[in-house]
Design a protein around this nucleic acid. Sequence first.
DNA 1: GACTATACGGAATTCAGATTCCGTTTGCGT
DNA 2: ACGCAAACGGAATCTGAATTCCGTATAGTC
Lengths: 211, 211
Amino acid sequence: MSATKTEPDPIPALRADARRNHEAIKEAARDGFAEHGFDCQMEDIARTAGVGVGTVYRHFPNKEALLDALVADRFERLAEETAKALEKDDPWEAFCELMRWSAEYQADDRGLSEVLGSRPMVGEAAAAKSGLVELSGKLMRKAQRAGQMRKDLLVEDIPTMICGLSAVTGSAEGSMPAMNWERFLEVMLDGMRAPGSAKLPAPRARLNQPR
Amino acid sequence: MSATKTEPDPIPALRADARRNHEAIKEAARDGFAEHGFDCQMEDIARTAGVGVGTVYRHFPNKEALLDALVADRFERLAEETAKALEKDDPWEAFCELMRWSAEYQADDRGLSEVLGSRPMVGEAAAAKSGLVELSGKLMRKAQRAGQMRKDLLVEDIPTMICGLSAVTGSAEGSMPAMNWERFLEVMLDGMRAPGSAKLPAPRARLNQPR
DNA sequence: GACTATACGGAATTCAGATTCCGTTTGCGT
DNA sequence: ACGCAAACGGAATCTGAATTCCGTATAGTC
């Protein structure tokens, strides 16, 4: 096949400024959603991006689509990270690290947390497309075969866990001095660990001893 | 003191119909919030209650206040239940049952879940007023002293856990066939159990074995 | 049965934001 | 430089509720 135009690429290549704006808008939206959740305003996003609202709408049909685009990016990134985790030797360790990483990644992004926490369907679609489901399934089974993760956990439980975690990371929002997702995560991980298998030698985020 | 009017009761006693409506509205609101979360409409609530919107506003200054009232009721109920749990012999067992009960209680109520999941501050106030904090604190310490609950858990962790749980119970919403809060809860409880202490003999909601 | 303070109903008002529209500007191929 | 399709800006429009207002109905009282 000639390399010239095998695929019917319908994208006429954006004009330079358009491409630039597209990025700026996503970045601004990231900030906006992160700070105010889905309730942030399109005008603000536009202003932050240094463009007019009209331009935002030229790039994304509506608010929801804008968020979706961001979510998709995120999941792609997460999928990459999961793939990396799959390479590591100790699957349980890898799994824990992955969970911690993703929690942290989300901790300062209310927008994402909100989607995952209260609009699971959106996340689900994105997750599927990014191949995240298969990847994390593999990682899980690997950890289970190694006897480090409880055998009765199912792949479908992962989104559930992440959903719960998101709610916690997301709802800090200034109030709730004690809304501490690190602690929550560690408890959750302990619950997922295979019964009897030793605790991790040095869990990154330690739970404080009371008093 | 004469029993006639010791306290300066400023409430002139509602008219009979008003009292009736007040209840009807709360009930309608309960349903409304349960089904559509905070996004349900005041008009709908009014219609369901068989009154006009005006009447709703006569009883509750605004939507938020209406929700708050409902939340307060809930927490009071929860506090009662917690007090009962405190009476039981096995504190860990009692704690688990309590968590299961409250999760179930919430499972079919998006409104509540939403408040707890994404507006923690509201819940916090209600929790404080109902005395729930002290009560659950006591229950926790009792379980810890009995060596059944991990010692490094703090009272402040409970709301966090409940917040996570709420997100999961709340976001079922029709989609997500697998969004299974029972499983989530059991994992969480396992994570909270004292290391080494035996598992419960017969956990109510069992995790299915895969395959 | 009449009187009046309470309550009620629901149309009208407000408001906050998302989305649209269209005249203007700009990148880029010739 | 020129021309024009591709992009832009942002005021104007639309929308979907929440909340207000005020004339009407009713419970409770004499």
